[in-house]
Write a protein that binds this DNA or RNA. Structure first.
Lengths: 203, 203
DNA sequence: AAACCCGGATGACAACTGTCACATCGCTTT
DNA sequence: AAAGCGATGTGACAGTTGTCATCCGGGTTT
């Protein structure tokens, strides 16, 4: 029986080693190489032609999303699984657009990783069900560009007056935008609004 | 030969499982239990009396730092190793104050984890050398425990009134603590204060 | 052209926030 | 015992924030 060859890419060395150890405990899976960033992963993928590439998103040199797109183009026989901390609908969409076959969260039980590898290897897609749901009912980004700019600055601790000056708007207008953003997000003040927006990947 | 009994606490389930798998590959180390947050870790530590507790810092319910302090008090025979993403001097300092025997970054090669476990088990301390240097010349944490509690909640977007209720203090007292924290940090409002404190690892 | 929508502005008002001076109260230090 | 200290509370005051109704001017739609 031939083992499924997996390449793992992850920038935190400790986590990379741990994920590799986790996959190696499976009898039908072998980790053929490890990469500490996207560029390295692309090189190693070319060399090893793995069946599956498991990759983080936020990495130096090249993000997992770019990596996925490159791999689809150059190594169509290698299937990509995104493994990330971020349950952001925006990331999920971009990952799928980039041709990723799986999107898995680091929050999920570790047993699911090997499962996902097997399923994707069989040609199935694996998308975190909670995230898919959340992406569905958290809906699209409700913030306008102005609201985003302003909420971002408010989240840094800037006052309405400072933001007004920075954006060449009146202070009252800033307050209006913030009020609108707070109400859209169901928050009770600017800080909570910023926190919620960040959590959903809208900031 | 008796294996070193290790309890691992980490809120990202996938990483938790992977770290456990990593440690299990060592012949002289056994993972006796796993916890998904600080409170669970404390309970399990009481039950299993592990030799070593490897814990993340940022976790729900109870942070790794609080956990370290509790463990020192209740289970002095268990030694704590902090394993975290954050190279923040303030975290290191607080970890050591809380009685942690090791402070390791997730950036480091995965082989160092087992090493650290062995060394700490032998009674040595293991602290990331770069971080130790940085911690030396950055100032001490200026915040009191109360200020930290309150600033933390303020940073989540809670109002003075909500925080007062939560901590059974008067609203005026909350405002006083926040005012003090803002002035200590040289910020101009609670949001900026929280941001600064977080960046330095004081929250 | 009339009707509408959009980004932006205004003013008023209540609520919340930040500051400060000053109490209390219990616990140490002298 | 007196003094000092730290944690907490109070009251007052000014400044900031959140909400709302309304207004204005420039494009679009009809």
């Amino acid at each position: 029986m031939k083992k499924i060859q997996v390449l793992v890419a992850e920038d935190q060395a400790m986590v990379l080693g741990a994920l590799a150890a986790l996959l190696e405990t499976e009898p039908d899976i072998a980790v053929c190489a490890r990469a500490a960033n996207g560029r390295e992963a692309l090189t190693l993928a070319g060399k090893h032609k793995p069946d599956i590439l498991v990759t983080d998103i936020e990495m130096p040199e090249m993000t997992g999303l770019t990596l996925a797109a490159e791999v689809r183009e150059r190594l169509p026989q290698t299937r990509v699984i995104i493994l990330t901390t971020f349950a952001r609908p925006g990331y999920l969409r971009r990952a799928l657009d980039a041709g990723a076959k799986g999107y898995l969260l680091k929050d999920r039980p570790s047993a699911e990783l090997a499962d996902a590898v097997r399923r994707v290897h069989q040609g199935l897609r694996v998308v975190d069900p909670d995230l898919a749901l959340e992406a569905w009912d958290s809906g699209p980004d409700p913030l306008t560009e102005r609201e985003r700019q302003i909420l971002w600055r408010a989240g840094e601790g800037k006052s309405s007056g400072e933001i007004a000056e920075e954006l060449h708007l009146s202070e009252g207008t800033i307050r209006n935008y913030l009020s609108e953003a707070i109400s859209k997000l169901g928050a009770s003040n600017r800080v909570e609004a910023a926190r919620l927006a960040r959590a959903r990947g809208w900031l």
